[in-house]
Nucleic acid binder design. Structure first.
Lengths: 258, 258
DNA sequence: CGAGACCTTGATTGTGCTCAAGAGCGGTGG
DNA sequence: CCACCGCTCTTGAGCACAATCAAGGTCTCG
């Protein structure tokens, strides 16, 4: 959790946007010129504690941020996960709604004032379109999660989720080989997938014993990508990973062998 | 299923937009001038069968349209429901993605060419903002569904869903008193809620016997709104029902008595 | 009147939850 | 430096909610 370099993190976000949207040099400059204040958040800390949470986008520099939903009796559901380079609370740009954001692990963030985002969006239509598109991708992912939780059993759910995160981390340039760092507890995994931590544990054991994936506290190691994708019925198209989708589908090195 | 009057249906959509966005007279005219072709769809029919589905928004005039997700083994999940006055496939305006739309019941639709929508959006910023906001509300609803399916038991899920639909139908001016017409089979209810039709049936019986709600093939009759909302832990704020939210929360007549 | 779609109910099974206890690990303070 | 404490992971035993399998009933439409 090194102190984040704002320009570097904004570049990571820019990289995301460019994966699906054409932006010219002036767009780049405008985005990188956003006044971004860095802050950090310990695991399980609520983002409101930093004050004025609603009027900002939160660009993740390191760690993991989750949007949380809660039932009256205290059950929790993670509705969206934001990995480094992604911005939480983007939808609030068009729709005033305060959602509960929480640090899944120790994280560092950049506050992007909505006022600044609106300004560059109003001046540069391409950027506005890119930001909207970014929000829509979040919508697509949410829809896929609904299918996953609504209609797949626990094992398939976990496999599907791990496939998704593998590709997202990889697209962000944060995976090395078939491994990536995803600092989640098994309880939080359960909160993503609508399962109890105990059952998550059992299913992970099953996936591990079958040689599909190895998941320790922080490191996810994909052992057999093809088998994992099959177990999760995973099809990456909903992630809209830019022009990569048809020809050069990103694959893990162990996709064919094993 | 009378043949829809395009202008009338577009007005219904306009009414929706005006619930959350300020639009001036010119905006109204622009929206109502969209060249809209009417068509009808029998229950269970796929929208692709009408051709070129991807390049259009689909404004529901009557009936019910669902966005469908499917697992490899044929299990279905309804990801979004569009009631009359709502437009399906709006997100495709910013993000090329072909989703599967299907008629839940016999329906009539208006095809709104994306080209036409983009044109009025580019010329009238307020309309563009309104359309984006409309999509974001869909996003919020999706998030609430995820919480509902991920963390509530079958009875609460159904209660929550019925509360949501009651308010949505009512906001569209399609509910009379505490009743509204929602043409869904119990199997489709299960596809919305991640349940089997058999179990939906049993839970409906329970809700009926407890005097909360009465659901026949087409008509939903809320018997005890407060109890139903409590059973579903329902809080309507995520629906963003315009300025109604704080003071004049829409209530059914039987909210207090019973 | 017959056929098909949908609803209803019963019996049984099973996936995932609950409750519980112990082990590993990392951080903290004496 | 070591002991302790809390958090997370792991595993077991029993339970319950919802799925599955199956059969009969109702309604609507042709």
């Amino acid at each position: 959790m090194a102190p984040p370099n704002p320009l570097e993190v904004l570049s990571l976000f820019l990289r995301r946007l460019r994966a699906h949207s054409h932006l010219d040099e002036a767009d780049h400059q405008a985005l990188l010129s956003i006044p971004a204040r860095a802050c950090r958040l310990a695991a399980h800390q609520n983002i409101r504690k930093l004050g004025e949470g609603a009027d900002h986008g939160w660009l993740v520099a390191s760690g993991l941020i989750g949007r949380i939903g809660e039932t009256d009796d205290g059950l929790r559901q993670i509705l969206t996960l934001y990995i480094p380079g992604e911005v939480a609370n983007l939808t609030a740009l068009s729709l005033p709604s305060d959602c509960l954001l929480e640090a899944v692990s120790d994280s560092t963030l950049l506050r992007l004032p909505h006022a600044a985002l609106r300004m560059i969006a109003d001046e540069r239509p391409a950027l506005k379109a890119a930001l909207t598109r970014e929000a829509m991708i979040g919508h697509e992912i949410l829809a896929e999660w609904l299918l996953n939780i609504g209609r797949r059993d626990a094992r398939a759910r976990i496999a599907h989720f791990l496939c998704e995160m593998a590709l997202r981390y990889r697209a962000a340039g944060l995976a090395s080989g078939s491994e990536f760092i995803m600092p989640m507890t098994q309880e939080q995994l359960g909160d993503v997938l609508g399962l109890t931590p105990v059952h998550v544990n059992r299913m992970l054991k099953s996936l591990r014993q079958d040689g599909l994936v190895n998941l320790t506290r922080k490191l996810v190691a994909i052992r057999d990508w093809n088998a994992l994708a099959a177990a999760g019925e995973f099809d990456s198209s909903y992630l809209h990973l830019g022009r990569v989708t048809e020809a050069a589908q990103p694959r893990f090195s162990n996709a064919v062998n094993s």
